[in-house]
Write a protein that binds this DNA or RNA. Structure first.
Lengths: 339, 339
DNA sequence: TTGTAAGCGTTATCAA
DNA sequence: TTGATAACGCTTACAA
C-alpha cells in the first residue's frame, strides 16, 4: 500500500510564510488572537489561507493531552431510538467543542471491548456507553485511566457511573394505568432477553410487581428477536386464544418488539383495539398502522444531551457520587388501545 | 475547567518497566513481534498489561501521518437509509483497520463545511460524503490535500470523484414498468426539492423522460418536507379528485416522502391499491401498513461497503479516472400496487 | 506584543 | 535481535 503523500501545510510553514514565529501562529489559531497586533494577525491569516492550513488535531491532542473527542458505544445503530439519542449526543458535543467518535457494537461483546480499546487509543475525553452489560476489563481500564463515563439506558455491572435513561418504573406504571383505564384485564408483556440490558430488567420487574395494584392479570414473554419469529407467533396465538372474559392486551418493551408483535398480530388477523396493543418507544409508523398504535415516547434528544452534560460536569469537578437521571416518557394514546 | 489528570501509561513507562528500549516496545505493538525474542516479548507483554497500556493513536498519527481514521458526512442521520449505509461503511472500515468519524449535517450547508474542517483537522485518510450539494471551498481544500474521496448517493458540483449510489434510471424504469403492468395510467411523482441532491434530479428527470415509453400520463410534485404538510395534502387531493378514467398512482422519491404521502393518503381516506402507491427505499413499516406498500429496496449495506472499497483503492493506487458505481434496487411488490 | 526552546508519545533511521 | 536518537506538528513556560 503506497503511502499517500497527503500534503498538509504545517504551523511551521505558515509561520515562515507570514514572517512570524510558530508561537504567534499557534496563538492565532488557539483562540488568543487578541494578543496579536492587527498587522500580524492579518499576515498570519493571509498565509494560512494561502496555504490552506488547518491545525493538526493529532498534534494538538498530543501536546495538550486534549483530544477533544468524546466516544460513544451504541448497542444497535439501526435502532431508531439509538440514533435519536445519538443525534442529541452529537449536537451537545459540538456545542461544547468536542467531536464524537461513534462505535456500533451490534450487541456483541467482542466488538464492545474491541471498540472500547479503540476509543481508549484515541484518548477520548469522555465516554457515553450504551452497551450489552459487562464489557468487563476494557471498560474498567478506561475508568482507571480517569475517563469520565456515562451509562445510557443500560447500567453495567460493577461500574459506578452516572446513568441517564428513561424512568422505567414510571413508564410501566403509566402503561398499566392506561391499559387498565381502557378496560383491558389480561396482559402479555413481551420483551427481549432481560439479561442483556438493565432497562429491560427494570421494566419487566415493575410490570410483574404492579399488576395487582391495577387489578390486572398478566404474564411476561421473553425471547430473542434474531431469526425465526415462530416462537413469538405461537406464544401470542396461545395467549389470545386462551379462554377468559377480560379483554386482552399486549405491552411491548421496546420499539423492536413493537414491530415484531405488530407483524405477528397482523398475521393472526387480530383487530387492534379489540386486542389491545401498546409499546415503549415512539416510531414513525406507529400512527400509520390502523388504527394507530399507542406508545410511550422517550425524550430521546434530551437523553443524549443529558448524557453529555454529565460528562462535562465530570470534566470540571472531580469525583462526585454517581447520579441517576430518569426521564419521563410521554403517553401518545391511539386506536390500538381503544376498544 | 480543571485539567483532567487522565493517567495513561506511555510507551516509555512500559519500556522502563520491562527493562527494554522504547523501540522494542514500539515494535511489539506495531506488528513486528516476530522480530523480538520470546523472552523480550513476554516481558513487554507483562509490563504493558500491568500498566494497562494502550498505544496513543494521536502520537502514532502524528509520527506516521496515518490517523487510521475515515470521515463520513451524513446529510441526515435520522434517515434509516443513511444509517443503514453508514452501518456498511463502519463495518468495512473496521475490516480495513480504520475507524469511522461520523458527522451529521442535518442537510445544512454551514454544518457541512464546519464538519469538513473538523475532519480535515483530524487528518482523516478518506472521506465518504453524502452531502447537500456544494460544500464548496472546504471540500476542495480536502481534495487538494490529497484526501481520497467518495461521493455517496449525491454528486457534488465540480468534484471529480468516485460516486456510489443507486442506479437511479434503472430504479425509475422498474417503477414505471411495475405501475404500468399493474394497470395504473396516471402518475404523480413526489419528491423533495431536487436541487439539493443529484439523485433526486436524476430520478425526477428519468421519470419525466420515460413516461411516454410506458404509455403513462404523469407529473411531478416537488416540495420541502419541513413544517406543514398542507401543501402536500392539497396537491395530492387535487391529483386524486381530477377526473379521468385511468387508475391513479403515486410514486415516492424516497422513504421520507413515502412516509409523508402515506400519512396524507390516510387522512384523505384513500384506499391503497385502488390508489396506487409505491416508493423508493424499503422501511420497516412498509409491510405493516395494510395492504403493504410496494417498494424498491436499496442495497444499503452494499453501498456503504462499496464506498469504503473505493477509498481503499485510492489509497493504494494514485489517481484513477472517477468511477460511477450504480447498484440495482430490488422490487418488493405489495398490496399498494394491487388493484 | 513577540519569540525561543522544551517537550507531548510515537515511529523511523541508523548503528551496534 | 536490540537500542539510541531524531523527527512528527503542536502548545506552553519562559524570555525579550
Amino acid at each position: 500500500m503506497a503511502a499517500r503523500s497527503t500534503r498538509h501545510a504545517t504551523l511551521h510553514e505558515v509561520a515562515r510564510e507570514a514572517g512570524a514565529s510558530k508561537t504567534s501562529v499557534s496563538r492565532y489559531f488557539g483562540g488568543e488572537r487578541e494578543r496579536l497586533s492587527p498587522p500580524l494577525q492579518q499576515r498570519i491569516d493571509e498565509a494560512a489561507r494561502k496555504l490552506g492550513y488547518h491545525p493538526n488535531q493529532m498534534a494538538r491532542g498530543l501536546k495538550g493531552g486534549r483530544s477533544r473527542l468524546i466516544g460513544m458505544l451504541v448497542a444497535d445503530i439501526r435502532n431508531p431510538f439509538s440514533v435519536a439519542v445519538m443525534h442529541g449526543v452529537e449536537q451537545a458535543c459540538h456545542e461544547h467543542g468536542f467531536s464524537l467518535l461513534v462505535c456500533n457494537t451490534d450487541n456483541d461483546r467482542h466488538q464492545e471491548s474491541a471498540h472500547l480499546a479503540l476509543l481508549a487509543s484515541y484518548r477520548v475525553e469522555g465516554l457515553v456507553i450504551n452497551a450489552t452489560g459487562s464489557p468487563g476489563g476494557a471498560l474498567q481500564a478506561l475508568i482507571d485511566q480517569g475517563t469520565p463515563l456515562v451509562l445510557l439506558d443500560r447500567e453495567v455491572d460493577g461500574v459506578a457511573a452516572d446513568v441517564v435513561g428513561l424512568d422505567n418504573p414510571k413508564a410501566i406504571d403509566m402503561a398499566l394505568a392506561h391499559l387498565a383505564e381502557r378496560g383491558y384485564g389480561e396482559l402479555l408483556y413481551v420483551t427481549e432477553p432481560p439479561e442483556e440490558a438493565s432497562s429491560r430488567q427494570h421494566r419487566m420487574a415493575r410490570f410483574q410487581a404492579r399488576l395487582d395494584d391495577y387489578g390486572l392479570l398478566g404474564e411476561s414473554l421473553s425471547l430473542p428477536l434474531k431469526g425465526s419469529t415462530a416462537a413469538l407467533h405461537d406464544a401470542i396465538a396461545a395467549f389470545l386464544s386462551r379462554p377468559g372474559p377480560a379483554p386482552k392486551a399486549l405491552l411491548c418493551a421496546n420499539g423492536k418488539i413493537s414491530l415484531a408483535v405488530t407483524r405477528t398480530l397482523q398475521t393472526l388477523g387480530a383487530r387492534l383495539g379489540e386486542t389491545g396493543l401498546m409499546g415503549i418507544d415512539e416510531l414513525d409508523w406507529c400512527e400509520l398502522v390502523t388504527p394507530g398504535i399507542t406508545t410511550l415516547a422517550q425524550p430521546t434528544e434530551a437523553l443524549g444531551r443529558a448524557a453529555v452534560e454529565c460528562l462535562m460536569q465530570h470534566h470540571r469537578a472531580q469525583p462526585a457520587p454517581p447520579r441517576h437521571l430518569r426521564y419521563q416518557p410521554v403517553l401518545i394514546p391511539r386506536g390500538s388501545t381503544q376498544r
